[in-house]
């Protein structure tokens, strides 16, 4: 038996919108820790890891670990029927091939339930070691989204370079080149507008912009994004989900042969 009640149902709606462009079908894993997911995109270049901790739910009952295979597009279709202020409850029974989403309006005058068919998904779970990153950049998520969008109109790849000066995003294409440098500005009044750069070693890595743009679908989840980089390792682009957990995107770099 599984029953997860999320008062801020809009968070689940935003999570789905954040990941469904990258991944079509995925297993949602439910345990005492929380509601989680790990899935790769179809070309195995990017990976998404989601965690919504059990403490973040108003009510969290998960009698034993279960894994529910869902089409994210179908799940998004159902969650789009929930109002932004609705409370969302996810219900499942052991051995059942369906999951139920219940939506309650804040005034309790409208209660809907949507039952969705589950699917069998063979998924490969990857072990991601804890790593010390050479550089960690924190910046406003909207700024990062803007940069990825702007650069993708000029080139297909972005070079992210971190130096003591700040973080530089560069691209080149048929029409020319572009460089955007963001400097630290941690003295700004509003913490959500700050850009901070922690650097142990200079880093320069090349990534496909198509994936970066896909990650920025998570922008509504968090005012800030954290970009963790190490030379010749996948980048981690993390959006924290207020007091509940995170969506992390891992993207393999393009490496000189």
């Amino acid at each position: 038996m599984l029953e997860l009640r999320l008062v801020q149902g809009s968070l689940l709606k935003k999570v789905l919108e954040a990941i469904r462009e990258l991944v079509n079908d995925a297993n949602f894993d439910c345990s005492a820790t929380g509601f989680s997911l790990q899935a790769m995109d179809s070309s195995h270049v990017a990976l998404v890891a989601l965690l919504l901790r059990s403490e973040g739910f108003e009510h969290y009952r998960c009698d034993r670990n279960i894994s529910m295979g869902m089409s994210l597009n179908n799940m998004a279709k159902m969650l789009r029927c929930a109002g932004n202020d609705d409370i969302i409850t996810v219900k499942g029974d052991d051995g059942s091939d369906t999951v139920t989403f219940m939506f309650e309006s804040p005034t309790q005058d409208k209660i809907s339930d949507f039952e969705m068919k589950l699917m069998d998904i063979d998924s490969e779970h990857l072990g991601i070691p804890e790593a010390e990153y050479h550089a960690i950049v924190r910046m406003p998520s909207a700024e990062f989204a803007r940069i990825c969008k702007d650069l993708s109109s000029i080139g297909d790849t972005v070079v992210i370079s971190v130096t003591k000066e700040g973080v530089k995003f560069s691209t080149k294409g048929d029409i020319g080149t572009a460089n955007i440098v963001c400097r630290q500005n941690s003295s700004v009044d509003k913490p959500e507008e700050a850009t901070t750069v922690e650097m142990n070693e200079p880093v320069s890595l090349t990534f496909a912009l198509r994936y970066m743009n896909s990650f920025t679908k998570a922008t509504p989840l968090s005012n800030q994004v954290t970009i963790s980089l190490s030379n010749e390792l996948p980048v981690v682009v993390e959006y924290k989900i207020a007091e509940m957990g995170y969506v992390r995107f891992y993207l393999a770099p393009k490496i000189e042969e």
């Binding site: 195995h44 990857l126 393999a252 393009k254 042969e257």
Partner: peptide, 14 residues
């Protein structure tokens, strides 16, 4: 020329 690596090159399956 840079080659797009797969995420599978970096992380082991569990």
């Amino acid at each position: 020329n840079r080659r797009q690596f797969s995420i599978l090159v970096f992380y082991a399956m569990t």
